[in-house]
Simulated assay, not measured.
Amino acid sequence: MLTPTLIAVIGPVEAALLTTWIKHYRRLGVERFLLTFHFPEHVPDERRHELHAVCRQSGIVPAGSSSGPWHEYTNSHIRDALRHQAGRGWHLFADADEFQQYPTHLREVVAQAERSRRQVVGGLLLDRVSADGHLTDWNQGDGLDLAYPLGGHLTHRLLHGDPRKIVLARHEVSLSSGNHRAPGHQPDPDRLCAVHHFKWRTGILDDLRRRVDHFSTGLWREQSPAVRDEAGRLLAHVGRYQGRVNVADPRFAFRRVSLGLMPHSWPAEARAVHTAWQPPATSREGGQ
């Protein structure tokens, strides 16, 4: 059985993050990467060249590269074109700040899904932050686990965003924006992948402010106000706590976690969140 083809739209992340991300998924067993870069207008050429160089050094030829506004539907359009190129079989979906963690080998995860006649595998975001909640930089030599040792539920309990992810799907299964749902298909709630979410790093506040501004002015087109509202909630929160996430807030359930060892409580914890989550009554579903 072949391992799934990894499908991803890559934005202007740090070169070190993309390098670490590729190594992570290769360790999981991924053999085929179908990546497309998309860069908003403000991204300097130097950053673009660095990311292309990472791919060359990793033996990956990007499927494409584009620049321009990051409309809410941009990711979905590029993702679906990549899926068409990938062809038949299983597809794996991961943003560049998402590091998936499974209790067993990726091939066995797919085999389990096929035995149970499911066409998707689900995951749940586990937001990673620094020990004191500051939105810090990180050192590639030390690794992500040392820089962001805490994992918790920030996305849905603070931002009111959808923490559910479709991490694997058969080629014929359609996905919603942000890979949050596969209409007509339900993942096994007892076999949810932990999606370690390393979004809360240096530079994220500027990104969120730009997102709010560009969606508000119409420079970037949105499908609902959900994404903009989520960004606003994070900005308001760190504004109240001197530029950091309040890791002591019990709602977020932050504790030390690791990419090397899935939390013992994860299956029951993820199932409870996944089955109970509902979008805010005032907004439709939005992407992350």
Results as ranks from 00 to 15, higher is better:
C55S: 12
C55W: 08
R56K: 14
R56V: 14
Q57E: 12
Q57M: 05
Q57S: 10
Q57R: 13
Q57F: 06
S58H: 10
S58W: 01
G59C: 03
G59D: 04
I60Q: 03
I60K: 01
I60T: 05
V61N: 02
V61C: 03
P62F: 03
P62G: 04
P62C: 01
A63Y: 02
A63T: 08
G64E: 02
S65K: 00
S66D: 09
S66R: 12
S66H: 09
S67K: 01
S67R: 09
G68S: 04
G68K: 03
P69F: 09
P69V: 11
W70E: 14
W70P: 00
H71M: 11
H71R: 13
E72K: 10
Y73I: 15
N75L: 14
N75K: 10
S76T: 10
H77T: 15
H77M: 15
I78S: 03
I78G: 01
I78E: 04
R79D: 05
R79N: 03
R79E: 10
D80F: 00
D80M: 01
A81P: 00
A81T: 04
A81N: 06
L82E: 03
L82R: 05
L82K: 04
L82A: 02
H84V: 15
Q85V: 01
G87P: 06
G87F: 07
G87H: 07
G87N: 06
G87V: 11
R88E: 14
R88T: 12
R88D: 13
R88I: 10
G89F: 11
G89R: 09
G89C: 05
G89Q: 08
G89H: 09
W90M: 11
W90R: 07
W90V: 11
H91E: 04
L92V: 08
